[in-house]
Design a binder for these strands. Structure first.
Lengths: 202, 202
DNA sequence: GCCCTTATTGACCGGTCGGCCAGTTAATTG
DNA sequence: CAATTAACTGGCCGACCGGTCAATAAGGGC
């Protein structure tokens, strides 16, 4: 509070975004007040209005910022992939699973956005899914994966499993016989990879 | 509004619960006001307090009521199952998928509860998961399913896929190449059932 | 018919909400 | 070194929040 107060608009915007992200992720948009955000990052409520205009605009800015980083991370991950084979998909699932595990804020932000019916983040994912399902299609054409399933649905399946595993973590933590993150991921991969493999009957 | 106003406490409680459910499902707990609920079901705000005590208590009552019906539906579905084989699990997945499709309010209510960190509904599901994974274990012992995966994780997998498919529906509606509910369900089942099947190498 | 319980109402409370605005103060520029 | 710009503050506004309370009225038991 009593720091030299160097005036840096970009830094201040960043601090506001960070505080807002933490609170929105934790409690959702409606349950967070501008006063809380202001207090958390040591700034006046008026200043947030000065930089972002309104609470809604701040919410949009928070989501845009977080999802842009998410999309960037995922896209670089996808693009450095080389040949399309089973190992590629397996590694992709592991990477995605670990990304969500290490970025719980993204998971929750996506969940809040889903409930709000926000469609903008869906557009962002569309490009990633397109890239991913294209890899699956190539692996199908190479005769490694069965080709009687929609490649987009293949991507959907593991995305849903990974996402909801972390979304509902507190929910199923007490389920009897449930294992750790890694144990579940490995069991899912066993089922998923064998389920995708091509057999003689295909 | 100007109806004869027959005084029926139980009916009034029911109407309040229904209006509150609709609004909470739509906008979440924090973004719904007691005034809105009162207006929607044509009673005074004070009357809601009279019957339920507080907004928090109403929220708990809404969840308790909705989840009790959900648990009842699922349990009767599970208990009428007979012999444990692959078809039983397949039918179980189809039933669960269709249940969520036909009860979108339950899906959203569960999602809000997850984000709030509500643990009470997890306890409810624990019993259902225990029943389901027991069936899977039996099918493993019968030599039909592979036995190198945790039965609870098998149940988790399809629950996550079904739940998140409907939770994120608005999100992935615009994904390229995505199919209908039924098409996705069938593709998932292809992968899931083959992934679980026992092979010679097991 | 009377009485007691309780479902139901409307007015009201202190508090918090998002947003606004008139100032103040620190950097930039010419 | 002024002058301009923009970051930043504090106080205020009307609206709305959840909750309370005294008054009213309908119904059921005697």
């Amino acid at each position: 509070m009593n720091e030299p107060q160097t005036r840096d608009a970009e830094l201040t915007r960043g601090r506001i975004l960070e505080a807002a992200l933490d609170l929105f992720v934790d409690k959702g948009f409606a349950d967070v007040s501008m006063r809380e955000i202001a207090e958390r990052c040591g700034v006046t409520k008026s200043l947030i209005h000065h930089h972002f205009g309104s609470k809604d605009a701040l919410w949009e800015a928070v989501k845009e910022h977080a999802f842009a980083m998410y999309a960037l991370d995922q896209k670089t991950e996808l693009e450095q992939a080389t040949n399309a084979d089973a190992k590629l998909l397996r590694d992709g699932v592991v990477k995605y699973f670990e990304y969500l595990r290490d970025n719980p804020k993204v998971v929750r932000l996506l969940a809040w956005s889903h409930l709000e019916g926000d469609e903008s983040c869906g557009e962002m994912d569309a490009e990633l899914v397109r890239l991913g399902s294209e890899r699956v299609r190539q692996t199908q054409e190479a005769g490694i994966f069965r080709n009687d399933v929609n490649p987009t649905h293949v991507v959907c399946t593991f995305v849903h499993v990974c996402t909801h595993w972390f979304e509902a973590r507190s929910h199923h933590a007490q389920w009897p016989g449930i294992g750790s993150d890694d144990e579940f991921r490995d069991d899912f991969l066993k089922i998923f990879m064998r389920g995708l493999a091509r057999t003689d009957s295909d």
